[in-house]
Every structure is written in structure tokens, then in C-alpha cells.
Computed example of a mutant assay.
Amino acid sequence: MNKMVEETVKNMMQPGERTREDYIGEDGLLYCGQCHEPKEAYFDQEKVGVLGIKKHPRECECRRQKRKEEEQYREQQRHEAVVRELKEHCFSDRSMKEWTFKNDKGLSENTVLAKLYVKDWETMKAENTGYLFWGAVGTGKSFLAGCIANALLEQEIEVRMNNFAEVLNDLSANFSEKNTYIKNLCRVPLLILDDFGMERGTEYGLEQIYAVIDGRYRSGKPLIATTNLTLQELKNPQDTAHARIYDRLLEMCVPVQFKGESFRKRTAQEKLGRMQKRIKEKMR
């Protein structure tokens, strides 16, 4: 029996394997030739009597560091795989994966608020608090919402970001599975509805919109929405159907205004300027 135990212990002695630099110390233990820490340790006398062997392996500093690096590498690989899969499910447009705070050019004054949402995520989740990004077209509402999504995804928190028109199209195309579809939208910890605007909504469309917003409200999970509607329009709806949607939305989300010129127009103007400059240089 002791031989079986001894063989088992020997098979576990990876940290105590000997290299050419290793040496036996005055205490009879194997020492690492690099860090000069022992790769072995003596059993207590009590255990020696039971096992019939005197020494057992231990990790020297070299081995500990190597093991930590291996563990960190495996953890990094696992983390990257999880985040990659979460992003695949979160975004319908691959370019949104690049909407990160790292790629933010600081053009929006609301970047601080977006970062604060990520920092205080646990509180936002517990209090069911979201944002309603409102303002003119091209002022960076969708981009900052995407930054929030990507930052949380990097923490392995599931987020789903959908264009609202796509949600309505999906509901119309899969009416028989409407409840399941809405349940899936309400399941994720954070839902982001991009380009929320239904001033021209049909009666059917408004019913679907309310079903999504109300379902999210009843799930007790936060919602972030972006819209080109003004806060005045949201607070003064044109009829009862819109009123119950907007009221529910404003109850869940803190309004955040986006001002300034359109980033898209600015980008287009910059591209035009660069092209004109190149043409002038070619013509010299």
C-alpha cells in the first residue's frame, strides 16, 4: 500500500522535477538552481509514519511565477472567447464593436455621463435606471450608447443593442412568437434601443412598441434608448397611445440631451476638405 502511495506522490512532483542547475542543499532537499528556493519540503513526523516517505514537492518562486502566467493566459483566452461571443449576440452591425471609449474622440460633452453609467452599473441595475439620449441626428447618441455596451461586455455583462426599426420588423415578421421575442429582449441585464422614434407609428406599431417598453419595465431591468425626438415632444405627446409609451420611457430613463453640430456632417466636411487638398496638390 505504501508503494502505491509513494508512486502517487511521485507522480504529483511536477514542481520538484530536477533540472541541470538544481542542487541538493545541506538539509537534503532539492533546490532550484534559478531562484534558489527549495522544490521539496519535509512531511511532519506524523505523516511520515502514515505515508512512509519523508518529502513532498513544493513550488519554488520560478514555478509559482510560471504557473501564474499560465493561469493568466488561460483566463485571458477564456475571457476573450466569452466577450467575443457576447458581442456577436449584442450587435447586428460589426462596426459597433469598435464603438468604445478608447476610440472616443471626446467630441461629446456626455462622455463623462456614459462612463459614469458603466462605473455605477451595479447601482443602475439595482435601481432600474437607464438613459434616454435625445437630440439632433448625428450628435453621437448611438456611439456613446455603444461605448456603454462595449464597456459592460468587456466585464462579461450581457447587453443587447438593437435598432428599434429592426425590433418592429422582427415583431411583425414573427407575430406568433411575439411573446417569446419580447421575453428575450427583457432577459438581458441591459437593453439598448437605438433610434427610438415613432411619431409616424401605426396603431399596430404603437401596440408593439408599448409591449416592448412595458415588458422591459416589468422585468425590472434597465433600458437605454436613443431618439431624435425632442424632450418637448416626449413630454407633450400627440395622443393617448403615444403618451403611455413616452410616460413609461421617461419613468425608466434619465433624459440626456445631445447638442452641437452633426458629427457625420463634420466628418463628411473633413473628408471633402482632404480630397480638395489632394486635388490641388496633384494639379500643381
Rank of each mutant, 00 (worst) to 15 (best):
E17D: 05
K39Y: 01
C35G: 04
T100Q: 09
L191R: 06
D27R: 00
G197A: 15
V254Y: 04
H79F: 01
L272P: 00
K66E: 15
K265N: 08
E59N: 12
K141V: 07
R58P: 00
V50Q: 07
E251V: 09
A243D: 12
T8A: 10
M198R: 04
L144R: 10
E70W: 05
L152R: 03
P57V: 07
M161K: 05
K39N: 06
A145Y: 09
K87R: 15
A241H: 07
L116Q: 15
L132M: 13
V159T: 07
P237H: 10
V9G: 00
S172K: 11
I157K: 12
G25Y: 01
E166R: 11
L206P: 05
R274D: 09
P222E: 02
D93H: 14
E158M: 02
A241K: 14
W121E: 09
Y246H: 10
W99R: 07
R78W: 04
T227N: 11
L234K: 08
Q76I: 06
M275Y: 13
S172V: 00
I24H: 00
V167L: 05
N184V: 00
R187G: 01
F258H: 12
C90N: 05
Q238E: 15
L191F: 01
Q257P: 04
M13L: 00
C253G: 06
R274C: 03
N103A: 14
V5W: 02
K87M: 15
T240L: 12
T139V: 13
T226I: 03
N2S: 13
N11V: 03
L193Q: 04
S172G: 03
K221W: 03
D93S: 14
N174D: 09
E70K: 14
P237M: 08
L171W: 01
K10H: 07
A268K: 06
G220N: 13
L113E: 13
R244V: 06
T202W: 02
W134D: 04
E21I: 01
E207Q: 14
I279C: 01
E233A: 15
K259Q: 14
D27W: 02
G260L: 03
E98Q: 13
Q77W: 06
M161G: 03
M96E: 07
G135M: 08
Y117Q: 11
Q77E: 15
D44S: 15
W121H: 09
F175Y: 08
G201N: 03
A145F: 09
M161Q: 05
R266C: 00
I213D: 11
P237S: 11
T139G: 11
Y23F: 13
E75T: 07
T227A: 08
G260N: 05
H89C: 01
M283W: 01
E17M: 09
E207C: 03
D104A: 15
G260C: 09
I24Q: 11
D239A: 10
G138S: 11
S142L: 06
M275E: 14
E75G: 03
L272K: 04
E88Q: 13
A145D: 11
I53E: 00
K178D: 02
W134M: 13
H36L: 09
G138I: 12
I245Q: 07
P38W: 02
V83F: 01
T202G: 08
R200A: 10
N236A: 14
L190S: 03
A241Y: 02
V5K: 12
T129N: 09
E46I: 04
R64A: 07
V9Q: 08
Q14V: 11
Y73T: 13
T226F: 02
N110I: 12
T226W: 06
Y73V: 10
